[in-house]
Computed example of a mutant assay.
Amino acid sequence: MKKKKAPTVYDVAKLAGVSPSTVSRFLNRTTYVSSEKSEKLKKAIRELGYETNQNAVSEGNRRSMTIGVLIQHPDSPFTSRFLNDMEKMLLSLGYSPVIATGHWQRNLENDALDYLVKSNVDGMIIVTGNIEEEKIIQVAQNIPVVAIGYQVKAPNVCSIQFDNTMGGYLATLHLLQQGHVNIAHIKGHSGQPDAINRFEGYKKALAETGIRYRANLVKQGDFSSELGYEKTVELIESNIHFSAIFAANDQTAYGAIKALTDNGYKVPEDVSVVGFDDLPTSQYFTPAITTLRQPIEEVGVICARSIINMLNGDPYETRIPPIDLMVRQSTRSIYEAVKEP
């Protein structure tokens, strides 16, 4: 006989006619929920036989039922994709996220992390950034930590990494295989691990194919479309020949393509452009952007499951799907261009 599926927060929310976040707030007692909604929720919980998956309310082991989430920038499409699936998973497990942002500034990241710790969260998810390893280990002495983009080997820490070096390598190799030799690179945030690793992948691909690295083809960006535009204009005005650009992320690629177009260049006829992240808008951009797809949504779910499993003393998963090259319209073989009349 097939085992009956246990009811979730979403089932309770549907029966009570409220949002999943309201259910979580009611269960966690983190904010006020009206008496009318509270009665509906109590009734729905009784009817469904819903039980939280932890022993948080037992004496001496009380949890806040919240998970701290440190992100880099609230307006980032990367962040919103990650948070969406992560929050759904946390809510289904009876937890609510408490989100703070560092705005890509080390001092603000540390302040935000301290704020989350003082908020009495049960666990912490750190999404990239510049937090020092010692700080992560310090936090993990009291609560479990899932750290994305870090390689911290310490008790109570689960490190999850995208292979950004391989991603940068694949992006550059794709352009090399299409005959491009003079490949510019617009980097991400200075000192940020993802940006550093993508740059290393770029240099590795050049070295393996015998292409000399040229510092004048590399510009320091910050993952924004604004600097993607500005740095591409600098490349154009420098009169240094380049036939392709590897942008540190899709937002940088958007700015690069706009700068090229504004200055009379066609993409990909004159210059090919590769991005990184595969944001939802990239396939609808003109031209559709060739990019490296990161399994962002999947990682959001893995992080949520891992932090709860760590809290409950259960095994947790750190393996994530690989980065994939998505070839679209923003890149073109130089050999094809030569064949055209």
Rank of each mutant, 00 (worst) to 15 (best):
K4N: 07
K5A: 15
P7G: 10
V12R: 01
A13T: 02
K14D: 15
L15I: 13
V23P: 00
F26P: 02
S35A: 09
E39G: 04
G49W: 06
V57W: 04
S58Q: 12
G60D: 06
G60C: 14
M65K: 10
V69Y: 04
P74L: 10
D75G: 03
S76F: 01
F78K: 01
R81T: 08
R81M: 12
N84T: 12
L91I: 10
Y95E: 02
Y95H: 06
V98T: 07
A100C: 12
H103C: 04
W104S: 15
D111S: 11
G129T: 01
N142W: 02
V145T: 05
Q151F: 08
K153F: 11
P155A: 12
V157K: 03
S159W: 01
H180Y: 08
G188Y: 00
Q192M: 04
N216V: 07
S225N: 08
Y229W: 02
T232G: 11
V233A: 13
E234P: 00
I240C: 10
S243R: 08
A244V: 02
Y254N: 09
L260A: 07
Y265H: 10
K266I: 13
V271R: 01
S272R: 02
V273M: 03
L279V: 05
P280L: 13
I289G: 01
I296W: 06
V301K: 15
I308H: 08
M310A: 12
M310V: 05
G313L: 04
G313H: 03
E317G: 08
V327C: 11
R328E: 09
T331L: 04
Y335P: 05
A337D: 04
